[in-house]
Write a protein that binds this DNA or RNA. Structure first.
Lengths: 93, 93
DNA sequence: TCCGTTGCTACAATTATTGTAGCATCACGC
DNA sequence: GCGTGATGCTACAATAATTGTAGCAACGGA
């Protein structure tokens, strides 16, 4: 599962998640990601672009490729699970 | 999505993935995870146990909790996606 | 031209991860 | 009881990743 290796990098899942609805500029993405340092974000974005999940639109701003949208679909159940996890397991933070 | 923060730590997804079928001992898990250092694995296992996804069975060996199995179910589509990703996008490594 | 934005990078400080070695504990065979 | 091999887990230094801050060049209005 090389995919797990890519996704298991810091901010990687989060980036895909934040781009779920609409493209974001690098600055917006940074804001959405708790002000994570641009160094990592840029690194992750490059990796995600090379993987074909994210692209930089002509008008600027990062968005999901069709392939990235497929991946996002895979994650939606995770979202619903996260909700239950938070309430059920008295999750901290 | 605090869940993404937890899952987005190195080896975290991989660990959950490797435990998908049956419980593994810490040594087996290490082997399954490309000989990752026991330091990280132990750290991740502790986090995953605190989160309620993984537990240490009485007879030894780490396994998924019922809650962890739910999470695993969420991941199965990811597996199928990974297959297509590898072939489609000429993914490296 | 000046201002604000874009994507992106440099660099030092801090964390996390790696790799190797080893601990205490328990079960088994002898 | 005594070794043997397994278990979960930890120490520690070396290395790699991440953070935080500052700033770059390029483009688009006003």
């Amino acid at each position: 599962m090389a995919l797990l290796d890519l996704l298991g990098r810091r901010w990687c899942l989060r980036i895909l998640w934040e781009l779920r609805d609409e493209p974001l500029t690098s600055r917006e993405l940074r804001t959405a990601c708790d002000e994570a340092s641009p160094t990592v974000l840029q690194a992750r974005l490059t990796e995600l672009r090379e993987a074909g999940f994210v692209e930089l639109g002509e008008g600027g701003g990062y968005g999901l490729t069709p392939f990235g949208r497929e991946l996002r679909e895979t994650f939606m159940p995770l979202h619903r699970f996260a909700e239950r996890w938070r309430s059920k397991s008295g999750a901290r933070v």
